[in-house]
């Protein structure tokens, strides 16, 4: 089985489980849109540059994304398991494909507050 056919097989499986957001998530991974931001304390947060150009905050520790789709489709309607940004984060974790940025503890606090 060639690498290309492996990719196609997994793409179908992802699409079967996560629907259309699977392909969009893979696109975000390909475009290196997922950044892991960590500080010396060991705490970390993910930022994902969405296709709209907006940056969303994801907390992988508890399944949270700041995008409107997560609030509506995942939390309110429960018709999706997750949004494309969270799926891109999980895919990047498995594929070790995150951009990595180190910041100070204080900067991480400001980033988490800024999300508010």
């Amino acid at each position: 089985m060639t690498k290309k056919s492996v990719q196609i097989k997994y793409k179908h499986r992802l699409k079967f489980i996560f629907g259309s957001s699977a392909i969009q998530a893979l696109d975000l991974v390909d475009r290196q849109s997922v950044t892991l931001i960590s500080s010396p304390s060991g705490r970390c947060v993910y930022q994902v540059l969405g296709s709209s150009g907006k940056t969303y905050t994801c907390l992988a520790s508890c399944h949270y994304c700041s995008c409107p789709a997560f609030a509506f489709s995942v939390l309110r309607k429960s018709d999706s398991l997750l949004c494309k940004h969270l799926l891109a984060v999980y895919l990047c974790q498995v594929m070790r494909a995150c951009q990595q940025v180190s910041v100070s503890d204080k900067q991480l606090t400001d980033m988490l507050m800024e999300k508010k």
């Binding site: 304390s41 705490r43 907390l59 520790s61 949270y64 309110r76 999300k115």
Partner: peptide, 22 residues
């Protein structure tokens, strides 16, 4: 709004997760 309430809830869990790691 519900998004702020969700973020506050997520931060509670993320904070406990950070303490667990430590």
């Amino acid at each position: 709004g519900s998004q702020e309430a969700t973020y506050l809830t997520a931060l509670l869990l993320d904070t406990a997760a950070h303490f667990s790691r430590r």
